[in-house]
């Protein structure tokens, strides 16, 4: 099956030059051909483990052990205690 690698890359927020796109397209086609081989079976997947149901937490704030300053230490660019990003509103 032919796949539109540029469309998939755009959805995945990835960028690639033409040469890379060609290599990925051919690899992806091989991989998709492999994984497409699934038996025709009817059924609905619930995915729930009834013996150990997921517990939803109460909607209350719990104090974090991490300090704001520690969290911001990981940010690529910080000003006045905020993370800096490019302008998004002209």
């Amino acid at each position: 099956m032919k796949i539109d690698i540029n469309h998939i890359a755009k959805l995945a927020r990835l960028k690639m030059d033409e040469q890379q796109a060609e290599k990925f397209a051919s690899q992806m086609e091989g991989i998709i051909e492999m994984v497409a081989n699934l038996p025709e079976i009817e059924g609905v997947a619930t995915g729930l483990d009834t013996s150990n149901p997921m517990r939803l937490r109460e909607d209350v704030a719990v104090p974090s052990s991490a300090k704001r300053s520690e969290i911001l230490e990981n940010a690529p660019q910080v000003e006045a205690g905020c993370v800096v990003v490019p302008r998004i509103v002209e």
């Binding site: 690698i5 992806m28 998709i32 079976i41």
Partner: peptide
């Protein structure tokens, strides 16, 4: 990431992701 994006993308998720989840149950 691209494989995951593809199998979840519009028009393909029934054929891939949903069938895979049914197979998982089996």
């Amino acid at each position: 990431i691209m494989l995951g994006t593809f199998v979840l993308s519009s028009g393909f998720s029934d054929a891939y992701y949903k069938r895979a989840k049914v197979l998982q149950m089996r």
